[in-house]
Computed example of a mutant assay.
Amino acid sequence: MVLLELFLQTADKHYMVGHRVPYNVFTDQLVAVPRVPLWEGRRAVVVVVHGVLLWQDVSMWYIAMISRFREQRILCDVDDLVCVDVDVGMKFWDHVDMEILSLLFGTPHLSFYWAAHEEFIYERWPQSQTPIPRYQGNFYYMGAFFGELVVEFPRLTSACHQAMVINWANGIEAMWPDKSHLNRYLLGHRSNNVLSTEDLWDPRLLGWPPVMEKLRSMAVPKNHQDIWK
């Protein structure tokens, strides 16, 4: 939960300063959730969910969780919903305001920042619910940082969840499950706002930029084996 603590601490300092921001934390480790002091008007709501054994299941299950809880009261008192997979390892570095919000926004995956389009790891298997034909798709989006208006959010979560259920019933697991489902959805529902590398930077992948107006958030080092356990 060190990554969650770092995320909350830096978000409280830099993210949507001056706005009411409820943090809805989905976890199967209630006792490990850190107690982080938050500014007035902000609160952390912890939602206990069932754990799963494999990291692949986690990556698929969190969209199902959001779909299940989207109509709960915790999501009824906000206008916009931003989804972050905290285990990815992310901290806010500078001020982030409402410029990232839109009807629907996505974040290109930093591992493919320098990659040619044909190197994107889209799902290609036609039997899956998530295939993207060759030469289609503008970006390869990461599944760890996206969002949209709450009133529109059920469309994304329902579409992704329904596609997952059909795949499960047919014994199919999409390549990089959460990313495949999100990328397929964004192919037919183009993002109104594509975040830039300034909005999420990884110095291990991209180095430090020689000239950058500002870095709003940054990936932090993490132990993948510990996270997947």
Rank of each mutant, 00 (worst) to 15 (best):
D57Q: 15
S59M: 11
S59R: 02
S59D: 01
M60E: 09
M60C: 04
W61I: 00
W61R: 10
A64F: 10
M65V: 09
I66F: 07
I66H: 07
I66D: 01
R68L: 08
R68W: 03
R68T: 07
F69H: 13
F69R: 08
F69P: 02
F69D: 09
R70C: 02
R70I: 15
E71W: 04
E71R: 10
E71D: 13
Q72N: 10
Q72G: 12
R73A: 10
R73G: 00
I74A: 04
I74V: 14
L75I: 00
L75K: 00
C76W: 04
D77S: 13
V78C: 11
D79L: 00
D79V: 00
D80G: 02
D80A: 03
V82Y: 02
C83V: 15
C83P: 01
V84F: 12
V84M: 06
V84E: 03
D85L: 13
V86Y: 06
V86H: 06
D87L: 08
D87W: 05
V88D: 13
G89E: 03
M90N: 08
M90T: 06
M90F: 11
K91M: 15
K91H: 12
K91S: 08
W93Y: 09
D94R: 14
D94L: 05
D94K: 05
H95L: 15
H95R: 14
H95A: 05
V96L: 13
V96M: 14
V96R: 04
M98Y: 06
M98F: 02
E99A: 15
E99Q: 12
L101C: 14
S102R: 01
S102E: 06
L103N: 10
L103A: 08
L104Y: 06
L104N: 05
F105S: 05
F105Y: 15
F105E: 07
F105G: 09
F105M: 12
F105Q: 07
F105L: 12
G106N: 08
G106F: 02
G106S: 13
G106Y: 03
G106R: 02
T107R: 07
T107G: 01
T107E: 11
P108T: 10
H109L: 11
H109Q: 09
H109T: 08
H109P: 01
L110W: 11
L110H: 15
L110D: 12
L110I: 15
F112H: 15
F112V: 05
F112N: 08
Y113R: 15
W114F: 12
A116G: 12
A116S: 07
A116K: 14
A116Q: 14
H117V: 01
E118T: 09
E118P: 00
E119P: 04
E119L: 04
F120Q: 03
F120G: 05
I121W: 00
Y122R: 13
E123D: 14
E123P: 05
